[in-house]
Design a protein around this nucleic acid. Structure first.
Lengths: 109, 109
DNA sequence: CTGCATCCGGGGGGATACTG
DNA sequence: CAGTATCCCCCCGGATGCAG
């Protein structure tokens, strides 16, 4: 094994992904490319506007996604993943694979 | 891209790894195999006994690590990673790789 | 040596209502 | 359409002290 835990930056990756909706937002943007606010809201069943906005803002501040505002009426905002955001793909893929293989049976608890 | 976000279990993996010290504890146990309580405490600079215990307990409850108590005086407790815990290795490796490549410059902020 | 008990503060996240 | 504004609760994580 080639870990050097003492120099471990695992926490950095984790801190970026922590947030109830962040990983799934990133996955959506990775596969869809670009999505509008309402589009994302429909995709994330159960999310409140406040949460969606805050999660998007934090992802944007980290440089993982970009926000493009069209000065129109009605308003139009598009979110897309950045190159930097794409670097997280291997992690999300690993988590996605793990999640599908090791389904947690919380419904039985 | 082969994601199906609507069936996404990414959150499951994330929820298991969330905890200030969990990833690094798992990495240590993955590389060392077995560690005593005090050994782990020395490895995790700055952790308090309470936190170490709580994180270990939660990892144990998830079935990721196992706890072996030796009824001796003084007490001796050994923690080791389980097979189930090892299934998280790809995720932690991915996060570790990402972390070392994309070092976050928070010290400059 | 390996914990548990207690007190405490901050913030992530939920529900609901309102706005340019 | 794309968000704000408020209120509120839970629980993570820190500090300190005690115990078998």
């Amino acid at each position: 094994m080639k870990f050097k835990p003492q120099y471990c930056q695992v926490q950095d990756a984790l801190s970026i992904l922590v947030g109830k909706w962040k990983p799934i937002i990133l996955l959506h943007l990775m596969s869809e490319g670009t999505m509008r606010y309402g589009e994302t809201k429909k995709a994330l069943v159960g999310i409140t506007p406040k949460m969606l906005t805050s999660q998007l803002r934090e992802l944007e501040e980290e440089g993982l996604i970009s926000r493009k505002l069209y000065p129109e009426v009605p308003p139009k905002v598009e979110y897309s993943i950045t190159e930097y955001g794409m670097t997280l793909e291997p992690i999300l893929v690993a988590m996605h694979d793990w999640g599908t293989k090791h389904v947690i049976r919380k419904s039985e608890m």
